[in-house]
Computed example of a mutant assay.
Amino acid sequence: MSKSYDDSYKPKTIFTTQKIILISLGWALLALLYFLLFSAKIPGPNGQEIREAWYLLGTNIFEASAYLGASVLCWRNWQSTQIISSRKVWLFIGLGMLAYFIGGIIFGYIEIGLGQEPDVSIADVFFVMTYLFLGTGMALALFSRRINLEKWQWLIVFAIGALGSFVAWFISQQNQGPSAELAPLWQQIKMVLDWFYVVSDVLLLIIATIMLLAFWGGKVSLSWRMIAAAAFSLYIADMWFKYATNYLLDYQSGDILEVFWVFSGVLFGMGAALEYEASLSLKRRTSGRKRT
């Protein structure tokens, strides 16, 4: 096999997989430092401790950039004819990342720009779409391969699913009811949304656990370990936010554990980039064997 033939499969772009991974890790590290250094509250006008608006804006920028980047990388996989896994998987995951990006932008504008904390907003439409698209994409990734777990592995899935369900149930027991100012219809919508998010988080946690165990081992599976880790990070951030809003008095966004939302977006993007690189490498090896 000639070197020129092998080079023809290399992507003609300055953003190689190695650079994407380094940028992603750097972005996650910067986000962690940002949360650690600037998340402290300061005295507000009424004696109540608050976080600066510029800090909250920064957290939204870190989060939005991570999910927007992940959606672009997922769509690159969807458009590639050489991708190993089903292209529909990356289409749905990419749509989920975009929906979360849009929802986060809207939520940030309402919270920071308008200074409001509504029980239900247009951002919830996009967050619901996120779970639907993301759950569909991850489920398709599992169904596209034959799952053959050992009994002890299914016990791990059951244990993590049970633990995740218990944590979600325990946190939801102190679920704050919708504001009395809301119309009865919106109060019902608020209750449905609360349980939808909780159930969706648990289902994604279970899917991620199965994915982590089923795809363990081998270079190609590394991308799916990143996707599973991204789902775990999303669960941690969501559960913390729900716990904080239910149990902590006058909770304000921007606490340190919310950095896991940034980690989740970064890991989804890294998973997509690693899958793209693995697909190109497999294509080059396969073509090389045909030429010899």
Rank of each mutant, 00 (worst) to 15 (best):
I160V: 15
E258I: 07
V259L: 12
V198L: 10
G269R: 04
Q188T: 12
V266R: 04
L149I: 05
A273Y: 08
A229V: 14
S264H: 08
G254E: 05
L212V: 00
A208L: 11
L267P: 04
W216N: 14
W152P: 00
F241Y: 08
L193N: 13
L185N: 13
M226Q: 11
T209L: 03
F196L: 05
I256Y: 05
P178G: 08
E181Q: 09
V157A: 02
F260G: 01
L182G: 01
I171K: 07
W186V: 06
K190F: 15
Y276W: 11
N246F: 09
V262N: 01
L222Q: 12
A180Q: 02
G271K: 02
L212A: 14
V259M: 10
Y247M: 03
N148R: 15
K219D: 12
G269Q: 10
L234A: 08
S144W: 01
L142D: 09
P184H: 07
A159Q: 12
V157F: 03
A237K: 07
I147T: 15
S223H: 15
N148L: 13
W152Q: 13
W186F: 10
W154A: 03
S264N: 10
F170H: 13
K219T: 14
G164T: 06
L204W: 01
I227Q: 01
L182D: 03
L222V: 14
F170D: 10
L204H: 10
W169H: 13
Q188G: 15
F158R: 09
A141Q: 14
M239N: 14
A231Q: 06
G265R: 06
S264Q: 01
T209V: 10
G254T: 02
W186C: 00
L249F: 06
E258L: 13
F241H: 06
S223M: 11
A237S: 14
L222F: 11
S165G: 15
S233A: 15
W240N: 05
L249N: 04
F143S: 12
A244S: 10
A214E: 08
A159P: 08
F215Q: 03
L257R: 07
V262F: 04
G254H: 04
W152I: 12
A231Y: 00
D194M: 00
I171V: 14
L213Q: 13
R225D: 11
V266H: 03
G177M: 05
F263C: 08
W195D: 13
L142R: 01
W261F: 11
A162R: 08
S172D: 13
S179Y: 07
L163A: 11
V220G: 00
I156E: 05
V157Q: 01
K219F: 02
